[in-house]
């Protein structure tokens, strides 16, 4: 789906760094940005706030039948992510085989192209999430190249 350029531009703060909002009255965070706090309404004191960029997979699916613009990405994992401030957000999970994605997996925000690209229009960038891999887990290795063993000096 082609999105109009001004829409893509307006969404840069939320798409690039999760700009949402915070209500000083009820102390709740919201994403996407809301001008009106649904808890406090006129008593709310709402200001812009960046959401944390790490969180946990709350639910996930693998999309096999895409909307137009995502044909070349199927199948792609899509998740509801509970950010570390408890705010939930929907995003694609990248760089992970499905079998590694679990409810509860830790994830981190990444910067990617999002959606359609017709090679001529302005590019839409935004958030996706990648699993935070622990040092123990590495690639499925079918005869990997021999990488040198580094000596990490620690401070």
């Amino acid at each position: 789906m082609k999105h109009p350029l001004p829409l893509i531009w307006r969404m840069i703060p939320e798409k690039y760094y999760l700009m949402g909002s915070h209500c000083a009255t009820c102390k709740n965070d919201f994403f996407p940005f809301r001008q009106i706090c649904p808890n406090c309404r006129r008593l709310g004191k709402v200001s812009e706030k960046r959401m944390p960029t790490t969180g946990t997979v709350y639910s996930f699916t693998e999309v096999s039948a895409p909307p137009s613009g995502f044909e070349f990405e199927v199948p792609y994992p899509l998740a509801i992510i509970e950010l570390d401030n408890k705010v939930k957000i929907l995003a694609q999970i990248i760089d992970a085989p499905m079998e590694k994605i679990r409810i509860g997996s830790r994830v981190q925000m990444r910067f990617r192209r999002v959606g359609d690209d017709d090679e001529e229009s302005a590019i839409s960038y935004g958030y996706k999430f990648a699993l935070i891999e622990d040092a123990a887990s590495s690639a499925k290795t079918d005869k990997p190249a021999k990488t040198p063993k580094p000596t990490v000096s620690k401070g």
Binding site: D95, P97, E133, A135, S137, S138, A139, K140, P144, T147, P148, K149, P150, V152, S153, K154, G155
Partner: peptide, 19 residues
Amino acid sequence: DQKRPAKARHFFELINNKT
């Protein structure tokens, strides 16, 4: 040394997350 994170991972370890 002070700026090196506690769980510093060397470049060659980082690129092991691959497919």
